[in-house]
Write a protein that binds this DNA or RNA. Sequence first.
DNA 1: AAAATTACTTAACACTGTTAATTTTCCAAA
DNA 2: TTTGGAAAATTAACAGTGTTAAGTAATTTT
Lengths: 212, 212
Amino acid sequence: MGITERKEKQKLEIRKMILDASMKLFIEEGYSHVTIRKIADIIEYSPTTVYLYFKDKDEIFYNLHELGFQKLLEKNQNLEGIKNPLMRLYKMGENYLDFGMENPEYYDIMFIQHAPMAALMEMEDCNWHYGDSALNALKQTIEEAMAQGLIHVGNVEAAAMGIWGMVHGLVSLAIRKRFDKLIPEQQIKGMMRQSLNWMLSAVDRSGNGLGA
Amino acid sequence: MGITERKEKQKLEIRKMILDASMKLFIEEGYSHVTIRKIADIIEYSPTTVYLYFKDKDEIFYNLHELGFQKLLEKNQNLEGIKNPLMRLYKMGENYLDFGMENPEYYDIMFIQHAPMAALMEMEDCNWHYGDSALNALKQTIEEAMAQGLIHVGNVEAAAMGIWGMVHGLVSLAIRKRFDKLIPEQQIKGMMRQSLNWMLSAVDRSGNGLGA
DNA sequence: AAAATTACTTAACACTGTTAATTTTCCAAA
DNA sequence: TTTGGAAAATTAACAGTGTTAAGTAATTTT
């Protein structure tokens, strides 16, 4: 059936138009300026048409949040060649901080806003695949580092959550302006990196200061 | 002038009524359900009257966020008697995690929402007093611990930001539902505490496992 | 060509924060 | 005690929000 196939394709095209428009608004004007009516304006359909392709606004943000994870994965490709798990851990942390500070809007939907998670809960296969695989990558690195005696040992899951928590904490405090009144603006990024370095060097049991 | 005095008092009373109503809505229905019209309903004035006592909604949230800090300060009174800075650090961390998980709405305006910081920027004396003194308390504890050789040494400011970042990261990931699909719900709080313990025991240089 | 299905739009609902213009209330001086 | 003016509060409106029910237009199937 060539016709239904073409129709399906067209449906996907409009879906993509909606996501592209959302993305454009999202990047250029920020989370709160992505409105159904503005999306409709851009794709030149009526606002209600958007609802024929997405259940609600949250579902649109769920899709944008996935694109954010793809961007993060791209950034993490520079980890591929790093064999030493401790060095990889440092680099992962730096990548994470950089990603968050360079893409605060993406970071917001990936790790702060309720919307994408609310959409996820409504889905039939409601696993958070991207979050899961990102955390697994971290866990694996920590597991290797512990096995090789390169870092303070302990529960891998707890350690992973702790390190994730720390970099997430730094980024989210920064982008939600909680450092602005506490330290000079130009120092924030540098201080965040120092925090990461202090933490990881405290965890370091390799005895040869890989953090340098 | 007894009359102008009474008038001033009345003005403060209505201000308090607005804050009380906001607080009630905030605690019972959450951040997003605090609306000017609902506040007006409760205090039995018209919506526009609210604007005679507060510049905008952000200013109301700034005041609520201060009350949150007072609540946190209360919780931290159990630190007073703890002389050992490392032990105090553990307890501070636990308090912070508990506070966040027990008062997610308060935590939200204190450390996640933009509103209170936006209001702060508009003020003449725009220092974040509560945030500043909370961070100072942490810095002082860390300084003591470093001076006594109880923890891994380094830049005090960076270490403080790192530890704050880590506990904030854990709480904010939890209340924004980023752990829900990654680990079983009943394990979240326990795992957060384990993360804190792993991190602090890695930082620990006292040699006698105070974390137990 | 008629019927049925799909795609899309119009109009509306029930909200939101906020402002300008207007009315009511209150207190002090004539 | 009446009058004038300031202060306090209100009404009405603006410009937006997400979302839905009902109706129209286009397309495919019978």
